[in-house]
Design a protein around this nucleic acid. Structure first.
Lengths: 160, 160
DNA sequence: AAAATATGTCAGCTTTATTGACGTATTTTT
DNA sequence: AAAAATACGTCAATAAAGCTGACATATTTT
C-alpha cells in the first residue's frame, strides 16, 4: 500500500454513487454479455488445457471443421487476426495431426485446410459443453425466443 | 510450406464435409456468440489504445464505477482472475488517477476502490459505443424480446 | 500471543496477440 | 517473356494479459 494515501486531496473528487442510467446506457446488459461469454468459453478452456492448446487453437479447429477447404486467408478474415498470430497456432495443429493442408487445385499458391478425424473429434468435444450450456440457457424458451436471441446476436456484429 | 505434403497418406483421413448437426449441436449460435462478442469488445478496444490501456483496464474501470467502494477481493471474484493479474492493471489505473483507494472504515486492511471523475468519464466513454451497438441489435424489438435476451444471457452464466 | 485475513510485491513463465521485414512459389498483368 | 501481384511461410522483436509460487506487512480475529 502507498506510504501516503493523500486522502484529503483525493477524497474531494471521489465518486461514491454507482454508475447507473447515465446517458441512457443499459449497463446491465453490457455486464450480462461479459459474464455470459466469460463462462461460455470457460468450458472448452478446461478441455484444451489437457491437450496443451489454448483458445486460439479452439477457434481454428472450429472453423476449419465448419468449412473444410477454407484457405489461410479465409481463416485470417474470419478470426480478424494477423497472419503471424495464426501461424504458430496453425502449425501446432498441423504438426499434431488435427489439421492437414492441401495445395489448392486451381490456385496452387493456396493452402486449403481440412480437419482429420482427430480434428473433427476435438471440435465436437469442445462444442459439446458449450451446446449444453446454451440449451440450459434456452430451457423452456419457445422457438420464437430462440430466433429473437439469434437475431440479436446477428445484430451485434459489425456489418462487413 | 512443408517440403513434403504427404498427400497420399493424409488425404485418406481428411474430412471434406462441413461439421453440421453432429450430436444435436447448434453450431450456428456458438459462432454467433463468438462474432457478437468479438465485435462488442472491438469498440472500447479502439478507445483504449489511445490511453495506452487494454481490455483488462476496461473491466476494472467498469466494475469500480458500477459499484464504488468494492474491495480488491470483490474485484478478483467478479473478474475471476488472480491477484497478481489484477495488481499491475489496478496499479496503472491508480497511478493514472482514474481510481483511488481508501482504507476500509471498519476493516482497515481492506482497500475500497472508488472512481475519480476522470475514471467515471472513461467508463462512460467506453460504455457508449457498446450501448449504441446493443441498441442497434435490438432495433424494433419489443420489451418482451429484450427480456428474453437478458434471460438467455443470465442462463449462460455458471451459477455461483 | 498466535492465527487468519486483505492486500501488496517479487521473480519467472505462458499464451496470444502485435508490427515489420523478407523469401518462395505461383498466378496475373503488362 | 518480364514484371507485378498474390498466397503463404518465417524470422525477429515486442506487448498485453494472464498464470504460479513465495513472501512481506498491516490488521483483525481467535
Amino acid at each position: 500500500m502507498p506510504r501516503q494515501m493523500s486522502q484529503n486531496a483525493a477524497r474531494a473528487e471521489l465518486l461514491a454513487t454507482p454508475m447507473q442510467n447515465a446517458g441512457n446506457i443499459d449497463f446491465e446488459i453490457i455486464e450480462l454479455l461479459f459474464f455470459a461469454y466469460r463462462d461460455f468459453v470457460s468450458d472448452p478452456d478446461q478441455i484444451l488445457i489437457k491437450s496443451g492448446f489454448g483458445r486460439a487453437h479452439h477457434r481454428v479447429v472450429h472453423f476449419v471443421n465448419r468449412e473444410p477447404g477454407m484457405t489461410v486467408a479465409d481463416l485470417l478474415e474470419t478470426l480478424q487476426i494477423t497472419k503471424q498470430s495464426l501461424a504458430r497456432v496453425l502449425k501446432q495443429l498441423i504438426d499434431s495431426g488435427y489439421i492437414h493442408q492441401v495445395a489448392g487445385p486451381e490456385d496452387r499458391r493456396q493452402r486449403k485446410l481440412y480437419p482429420t478425424q482427430a480434428g473433427r473429434d476435438l471440435a465436437l468435444a469442445l462444442a459439446e459443453p458449450q451446446s449444453r450450456r446454451i440449451e440450459r440457457a434456452f430451457e423452456g424458451a419457445s422457438d420464437a425466443t430462440r430466433e429473437s436471441v439469434k437475431r440479436f446476436l446477428r445484430g451485434m456484429q459489425t456489418a462487413k
